[in-house]
Design a binder for these strands. Structure first.
Lengths: 251, 251
DNA sequence: CCAAAAGTGTTCTGATTACACCCATGA
DNA sequence: TCATGGGTGTAATCAGAACACTTTTGG
């Protein structure tokens, strides 16, 4: 009930509150997440989610947007940001009691403009989630700092299910985009592409999912018939949902 | 990234961390939520969600289960509890910086065993959510303390959508139950009952949603043909989802 | 003309809807 | 036998799956 009356509020143990970010993008057809390499202990040298403290005058969303700009070097981040969940195990940070409000962000393909390392990170890069070995034992993949593997697993599940029933897949592509671009997002996130014809029908029959432009794709190395270009529509939810095909990846 | 290296962790402003609970049940056919009346300032006399501080050795889930037992007086709470979201506006508590990790709980029908008031509450009762006037302006309904109206709105939306694609509706009924009991849960939560025949087929054809017993309902004031009794099955998700009928309530 | 990608059509199947109807029980 | 719920059956409809097919471009 938010600081119940009758308690001496100052008598309670202090917590630090941070935000952690799971920023996803599609990079060369692979769903990828932004990680930073820690420079200092604890977990020096390990890869970790970007994040930082919530400041006195901020709420969590504000802090997350600020960190997103600071740590990724993206001034005008144009994607989607939402709260994921809060992680509060007493021993999750060896230094002190830290509660982390994890967030989920969807960024358009950022292959060219790589993120810049934050001041407290010696490196930052996009990791294809498949290379992290989150599903199997730890030996196979990358050992993340803190409880970030758990956070990332939860975030991945949220991304995979969220594009089923929302239009958020469009947040992974730069405008304007072709329907094939959008379909590649589903393929990357789910590990299997939805049927071409059914996908087109589904997207085009959902009013407000995408809006057609007059232009066609004039890309350089393009092959075959040029595709019509689209922009994001105003719809947010899919009714009924886009069904995820059986895939070796996402079970 | 959970207390980045390079920061002096002790130099950061202290937060208090609490858990707030939105505990729902079906009471006389109405979806109801447990509220407590605040005895002290701030917001003395106002209704608020139950909750309390996270203790030094607890994570949020543990604190939520503890508060659930303490504030509701239910020793062996048998329902479902999950994290909802975290609320962190800087001014949400006038006394100090308090971040609240809100939770969502589903309790079976508790008409008879009413909750006992916690030590810091002068009263506790189940409120039909319709009587709270959350949708319209504040004049119509009950003014809740802090940002609890916002939390409750979010919780309601989660409940309504969650019973679409999970088997959590069974957490609102005591075992054993009839299919009509279960259908009344959907009617109460959604404001409109799903079609009788289609509902039965859906529930019975989803393996693991419910398991039949050999008994029939021998209730006292019962009328008409006695119904078969069921228990909860092991399934957690519905594929495809139970479709919510058009209703005046849930739009 | 051929490869490659865009885009369209078509049939089959399964689930949902919107009903009407039958069954079992207590008063 | 009648009211009251429990329980079953069914035709129309709709959406998705699967797959073949046509179209438009660059080499």
């Amino acid at each position: 009930m938010t600081a119940p009356a009758g308690y001496d509020v100052s008598a309670h143990p202090p917590f630090a509150v941070t935000v952690d970010l799971t920023v996803f993008t599609i990079h060369d057809g692979a769903l990828s997440v932004l990680l930073i390499r820690r420079g200092d202990d604890p977990y020096a040298g390990r890869w970790a989610l970007p994040g930082g403290f919530v400041e006195p005058d901020e709420d969590a969303a504000t802090a997350a947007w600020r960190e997103l700009a600071e740590e990724t070097g993206l001034e005008r981040f144009s994607g989607h940001l939402e709260q994921l969940a809060t992680y509060s195990a007493p021993d999750r940070d060896p230094r002190m009691r830290v509660v982390s409000i994890a967030h989920l962000a969807f960024a358009p393909g950022l292959s060219r403009r790589g993120p810049t390392a934050g001041s407290d990170a010696s490196a930052a890069r996009w990791w294809p989630v498949e290379d992290l070995g989150l599903d199997g034992g730890q030996e196979a993949g990358v050992e993340l700092a803190f409880d970030h593997a758990e956070i990332l697993r939860d975030a991945l599940e949220r991304v995979r299910s969220k594009i089923e029933y929302t239009t958020l897949a469009t947040q992974f592509v730069d405008e304007p985009f072709t329907l094939a671009d959008l379909r590649r997002v589903y393929a990357a996130v789910w590990g299997a592409a939805p049927d071409l014809g059914n996908f087109r029908r589904k997207v085009l029959s959902t009013s407000g999912f995408v809006v057609a432009t007059e232009q066609v794709d004039e890309g350089e190395g393009r092959l075959g018939r040029p595709a019509l270009l689209y922009r994001r529509g105003s719809a947010t939810h899919l009714q009924p949902a886009m069904l995820r095909p059986d895939s070796p990846l996402s079970g």
